[in-house]
Computed example of a mutant assay.
Amino acid sequence: MPAKKQITKEMILDAALQILMEHGIKAVNVKSVAAKLHCSTQPIYLSFDNMDALRQELVPAAVDKFTELMRQECGAEPVHLYGIEYVRFARQQPELFCFLFMRPQAFSEMKHVLCPIIEQSVTVLMEQYYIDHDAADELYDQLWIHAHGIATMITTKYCDWDMDKAERMLDRCQKALTKGYEA
């Protein structure tokens, strides 16, 4: 008789992330994770005190997946949250996007965990427009909020804009917002 496979915490988080990406956070529960792993619920309860603990550890796993997908989308370009890549991500991964960026009070949490990406982009804006950190950070937030609005409208199917229109809108917004900074 073959030995039973050992279910690890990482396997549980991976299964939960897959469920999240396919069906949304409401579908992530002990039974669905156990079914995905083809095991009983016992390994999940042994690895996590409760579902809140599992969901809390799901946030960094989801951020890692987001970062991985954004790096693939951006290629050689640096990852930032105000470009068409962010909107494409939202369209391609609506459940993951909603989990990361549309939860109540998620803005400050996501701004904190995505700090390396944000700071890199703020530095680029500082150099590009010869502005100080505070001004570049505010400009970054304005650009991100505009991209986020478009991404949210597309993800929630509020509108059915194509990517060409979204890209034109982002480009025009960036030009308008940065006009005052150009030397």
Results as ranks from 00 to 15, higher is better:
residue 1 M to I: 05
residue 2 P to I: 08
residue 3 A to Y: 11
residue 4 K to Y: 04
residue 4 K to I: 05
residue 5 K to C: 00
residue 10 E to D: 14
residue 11 M to S: 15
residue 11 M to V: 01
residue 11 M to D: 14
residue 11 M to P: 01
residue 12 I to R: 09
residue 13 L to E: 07
residue 14 D to Q: 15
residue 17 L to R: 09
residue 17 L to T: 03
residue 19 I to C: 08
residue 21 M to D: 11
residue 23 H to E: 15
residue 28 V to T: 07
residue 28 V to Y: 10
residue 29 N to E: 08
residue 31 K to A: 15
residue 31 K to P: 00
residue 33 V to M: 08
residue 38 H to D: 15
residue 39 C to L: 03
residue 39 C to V: 10
residue 40 S to D: 12
residue 41 T to F: 01
residue 42 Q to M: 12
residue 42 Q to P: 00
residue 42 Q to R: 11
residue 43 P to G: 08
residue 43 P to L: 07
residue 44 I to Q: 04
residue 44 I to G: 04
residue 44 I to N: 04
residue 45 Y to G: 08
residue 51 M to F: 01
residue 53 A to N: 09
residue 55 R to E: 09
residue 57 E to F: 03
residue 60 P to R: 05
residue 60 P to K: 06
residue 63 V to C: 08
residue 63 V to T: 12
residue 64 D to C: 01
residue 65 K to M: 13
residue 66 F to C: 02
residue 67 T to D: 12
residue 70 M to A: 03
residue 71 R to H: 07
residue 73 E to S: 10
residue 74 C to K: 07
residue 74 C to E: 09
residue 75 G to C: 08
residue 76 A to V: 11
residue 77 E to D: 15
residue 78 P to R: 03
residue 79 V to G: 06
residue 82 Y to M: 02
residue 83 G to Q: 02
residue 84 I to M: 08
residue 84 I to Y: 00
residue 85 E to L: 00
residue 86 Y to I: 00
residue 87 V to K: 05
residue 90 A to N: 06
residue 91 R to Y: 01
residue 92 Q to M: 08
residue 94 P to R: 04
residue 94 P to W: 02
residue 98 C to V: 04
residue 99 F to Q: 03
residue 99 F to I: 02
residue 100 L to G: 07
residue 100 L to H: 08
residue 101 F to E: 06
residue 102 M to S: 10
residue 103 R to T: 06
residue 104 P to D: 10
residue 106 A to T: 07
residue 107 F to G: 01
residue 108 S to A: 12
residue 108 S to Y: 06
residue 108 S to V: 05
residue 109 E to I: 10
residue 111 K to D: 12
residue 112 H to N: 11
residue 113 V to I: 15
residue 117 I to N: 02
residue 121 S to H: 09
residue 125 L to P: 05
residue 125 L to F: 02
residue 126 M to H: 02
residue 127 E to A: 12
residue 127 E to I: 00
residue 128 Q to C: 09
residue 128 Q to S: 10
residue 130 Y to P: 00
residue 139 L to Q: 10
residue 140 Y to F: 15
residue 142 Q to W: 02
residue 143 L to I: 03
residue 145 I to S: 14
residue 147 A to C: 11
residue 149 G to L: 05
residue 151 A to P: 04
residue 151 A to H: 03
residue 151 A to Q: 04
residue 151 A to Y: 02
residue 151 A to V: 03
residue 153 M to F: 02
residue 154 I to T: 05
residue 154 I to K: 06
residue 155 T to P: 05
residue 155 T to F: 01
residue 156 T to C: 06
residue 157 K to Y: 03
residue 158 Y to H: 12
residue 159 C to L: 05
residue 159 C to H: 08
residue 160 D to P: 00
residue 163 M to F: 09
residue 164 D to Q: 12
residue 165 K to Y: 13
residue 165 K to R: 15
residue 167 E to A: 15
residue 167 E to N: 14
residue 167 E to S: 14
residue 168 R to N: 13
residue 168 R to G: 01
residue 170 L to G: 06
residue 170 L to N: 07
residue 171 D to Y: 12
residue 172 R to M: 11
residue 173 C to N: 15
residue 174 Q to R: 15
residue 175 K to E: 14
residue 175 K to D: 14
residue 177 L to H: 07
residue 178 T to D: 08
residue 178 T to E: 11
residue 179 K to V: 01
residue 179 K to G: 14
residue 181 Y to N: 10
residue 182 E to M: 13
residue 183 A to I: 07
